[in-house]
Design a protein around this nucleic acid. Structure first.
Lengths: 307, 307
DNA sequence: ACACCGGCCGCTCAAATGAGCGGCCACTGC
DNA sequence: GCAGTGGCCGCTCATTTGAGCGGCCGGTGT
């Protein structure tokens, strides 16, 4: 096709797609038949004069997300094309997760919030969230400015709902201390609310390779013992093996939503990415504890290959 | 709009634009109403999930070309977005001009060919040209491998039509020599054919600033004299002043199509670009000798500003 | 509590659209 | 010269599409 005809095709395409004129109108304008205009438009597509791109502005890969969702039978899955740099990746995943929460959470919900570095970057992108209670799901592990309490505070500040923080460590040294903490009024109230949680955002901790706040806060010999029992991942204090089965042994010393209650939550969304988390995420998916997943595209591909 | 809805919108857009499914079909697929699909598509446009670009692959700026054409009342105008580098620019203009010739020239035509560095790069992109006579419009000025004869030969090699080269210099020292040359059998035949030319491709030579093979091949004092007479441009040996008027004085010593015959040609397409040629092109347009123009976008903008 | 209001949704109907059909024209081979 | 052939073009008709209408629902102000 020569430039003369190309020009005409481009003109027709512009009128049609940008000026929203119908083919019949364009035909009148340019003294052509409706059919000539239609053929010109077809040709414009064939020649690459008109190009249509479908791309999610947030960086979500729709096709990959859909494959991920179907493959693992999840309710939701979002595979985000992110930067390689972990900090940037966390910010990008946080943004998508924040938007997703805005979609998913209604006023009738009760939102449970766990902890993770990626979860920590949710608030900075969280602008729209229905007013509902925000409940902390686990005790604190992390710095003063970056921990679950802070996250719960920031989320509730955005949506204006009542916050239920847990001012206690994630794991304590013995069962007695844990029991004592659990009976503390504020903590007991939060733990009681765990029964009413309808949506939860959680991170996934990895034990092999180790990338988990909980793992880090345990003494070495205990890590060894648990690893020997096949611990691969950790979700809200619940330890999982490669098959996704719950590994017992720490539940009595954790201040966190217990596994059976977590399983009752109608919608648990896991957020996390990076190569180190892949096996852990796979375990989390297999456990059936999580219903949604927000991760990076590379991890998503890997998950599809492995699982 | 949250990522959930965005995903759906992207899915709908993909199905609609890439899989060419109708909105009703998509509605069935996804268990939505036809209207929801329509709204999703609208939203996808509004959110920038679907982007449509209209761009001529050859680099022709359709809008600018159209403005150029209308502004100067030309039959055709092509403004090409080119590289700044003159050699690359000439190749790009040559390609567009070649494609244009393929469009414009029919078997019933007789194609006249002048000379210019940009015209010289037409053959390398010329693949499709109706079989018709190819006639040289001017004598030779240039190197052995780059001149009008060579150009005519290459063009006729592509279209398989009879070639009428002119083996003579563009300008000679005196009227007698010119007359002698014109009566040479081969040359006379070509000159006779000038009456039958229906399409012509020409370059535009500039005298101020000087950028013209003809200008260069004249002795300095003669250049001065002609410049004093207001010569601004040269088209096929015809000299033009700023207003586009023909400046007499050289016609008897040129071996080229005379101005009055050139004016008879139903379609003359000028090809050329670059900052140095702008004033000359303006003169050529004003002369009414040319009906079509292939130039670079920068020059086109400038022409619109000046003229 | 109840009526009001604004936004969202699906239906109707006329306009726009695309697939398929037949006619026209130019080219080809006898 | 002329029938056969292939490609291009515009028409018809069934389908798709979009503007506009009215109903529903949730929020709001008496």
């Amino acid at each position: 096709m020569g430039p003369e005809r190309q020009m005409l095709a481009a003109l027709v395409a512009t009128k049609h797609y940008f000026e929203k004129r119908t083919k019949s109108q364009i035909a009148e304008d340019l003294a052509l038949s409706r059919f000539q205009v239609a053929r010109l438009l077809e040709a414009a597509h064939a020649e690459g004069i008109v190009r249509i791109t479908v791309e999610l502005p947030s960086g979500v890969d729709a096709g990959l997300s859909d494959r991920l969702r179907r493959h693992f039978g999840l309710k939701r899955a979002l595979a985000v094309v992110t930067a390689d740099d972990p900090a940037t990746r966390r910010r990008q995943l946080g943004k998508v997760a924040a938007d997703l929460l805005g979609d998913v959470v209604t006023e009738d919900d009760c939102l449970g919030v766990a902890w993770g570095r990626t979860l920590g970057s949710i608030p900075e992108s969280l602008t729209r969230l229905a007013t509902c209670p925000v409940v902390q799901l686990t005790g604190v592990a992390g710095s003063v400015s970056e921990n679950t309490v802070e996250l719960v505070r920031q989320v509730s500040a955005v949506n204006g709902g009542p916050a239920s923080p847990i001012y206690a460590p994630f794991v304590v040294a013995d069962t007695t201390t844990a029991r004592g903490l659990r009976s503390q009024p504020g903590i007991a109230r939060a733990l009681e609310l765990h029964r009413t949680v309808t949506r939860a955002v959680v991170g996934v901790g990895s034990w092999d390779p180790p990338d988990s706040k909980m793992h880090d806060s345990l003494p070495v010999e205990e890590r060894r013992a648990l690893l020997a029992k096949g611990v691969q991942a950790e979700v809200c204090g619940t330890l999982l093996n490669v098959q996704g089965g719950v590994v017992a042994g720490l539940e009595d010393r954790c201040i966190a939503i217990p596994a059976d209650l977590l399983r009752q939550v109608p919608e648990v969304i896991a957020v996390g990415g990076g190569a180190t988390k892949i096996k852990a995420m796979l375990a989390a998916i297999r456990s059936g504890l999580i219903h949604g997943l927000v991760t990076d595209a590379t991890a998503a591909e890997e998950l599809l290959t492995l699982g």
